[in-house]
Design a protein around this nucleic acid. Structure first.
Lengths: 234, 234
DNA sequence: CGGTGTGTTGAGTTTTTTCAAAATAGGTGG
DNA sequence: CCACCTATTTTGAAAAAACTCAACACACCG
């Protein structure tokens, strides 16, 4: 069905099956409804570095990541790049332009070899009518995203880099749970782009945090939080 | 500037009627459907300075502005305030939390004596089922808002104050059309809060723009753009 | 005509960036 | 497994951007 190249053929298949059920806007459906949606999806593979879509291109599909990683970034008016998010399996993109005639404003690039499932706009809209609960899920998802995005805007508008970095680290331990140690979800160049600063500043601030005894840098990517409260009181 | 004290008594009523038809998520409906929605709305008045909702409060209504102005702002983690938007008649707020159990993350305050129409969450959800086209409108509205918000985030993350201010001025002339002269939609204190900077910096940058011949400051609030291209090339 | 809130200007300071150079990690081919 | 290459990360020094605080100017209001 959708085996590409010479990957282990069952691997791709498995993750394609799995990916729909991972998606928050679909995972409440009955399995036969899910199957129906699955039939409408088209699996596509991208090699590391390939562009999935670019700003200015017509948007006409929803992309769901089955495996791999996708980097979503935007260019500002003056040409500077900002990392918006990194998609991991179960995440989706392309949704913004699905409900109105519209073009992409961001870029999507495969960070490693990546498989996605595509659903076309018309198929999706059919499903929205057939399974109205999806609309509510999407509305809920959108409003959550809006909250997040506005919160993020406020952070950029009012907090200095140090604070934004501290809040980011706090979120990382939080999602790691259990332990106070975690691996940064991206390299520092990307982290800088995500936090709207430079790699140098990230590096310096982390050293400051370390010197104050808030964190310990186990390795370039691995960090242990020693004093979360102190970190957040900065 | 705004009628104080001596409003005509039918004024409130009139604008209440009009407000629903101003709202982009309802204005496509037949007038009898609109009437039905109107019956479900409850008009409420707020005096200048009154709080409509605050962060942390349960969200259970959509608010549509019939007349007046509402200031929406957020507090960052470290307590600094950012102006998110100013609502004018026809705008609505409270929508974010309408599709999931949730609390407000922002504050809404009447900037002058203001009348709004409220629709409760349960009424609205009833209408969504009855008139499914509203869902699509809201989805479209949300995705537009998300684009705007993410674009805004990227600006804050990558552009310096000067550029953000220039882009803001450009948007102002754009919506003014016709002429290159316009009135700032808010005072400079609020503008600073909106652009994530201080009134002092706004003041200085405007003086810089003037000295470079990009703009002319007619009065404290009124600005004429002399060289838009120059302004945007900063 | 004061009074209050808003806007402007100046001086000094903090924060962040830039550019350059050195250190480190990770991957590849031998 | 090691040597080498490249990309990433760190550090330093200087410059740029923005903020703070304080003083003053201006506008609007009664």
């Amino acid at each position: 069905m959708y085996h590409r190249g010479n990957y282990r053929s069952d691997h791709t298949h498995e993750s394609h099956e799995a990916c729909i059920s991972l998606v928050p806007i679909f995972n409440h459906l009955e399995s036969d409804q899910m199957d129906e949606i699955m039939k409408a999806t088209k699996p596509v593979s991208y090699k590391k570095g390939e562009i999935i879509y670019r700003a200015g291109a017509q948007s006409n599909s929803l992309y769901i990541v089955s495996n791999g990683k996708i980097r979503i970034y935007r260019l500002s008016e003056s040409g500077k790049e900002q990392l918006v998010r990194i998609l991991i399996p179960g995440d989706f993109t392309g949704e913004l332009a699905l409900f109105r005639e519209s073009i992409h404003e961001s870029y999507a690039v495969a960070m490693e070899d990546t498989n996605v499932c595509m659903i076309t706009r018309s198929d999706l809209q059919e499903f929205l009518l057939k399974f109205p609960s999806i609309s509510l899920k999407i509305l809920s998802e959108f409003s959550k995203r809006l909250e997040t995005s506005e919160k993020q805007t406020t952070r950029f508008a009012t907090e200095k880099v140090e604070t934004r970095l501290a809040l980011f680290l706090a979120k990382c331990v939080d999602s790691g749970e259990k332990t106070t140690e975690f691996v940064l979800p991206m390299n520092k160049k990307n982290l800088a782009s995500y936090l709207g600063t430079t790699p140098e500043t990230i590096s310096r601030k982390l050293t400051d945090f370390k010197n104050h005894g808030y964190i310990k840098q186990i390795s370039h990517r691995k960090i242990r939080i020693l004093d979360l409260d102190g970190l957040l009181l900065i």
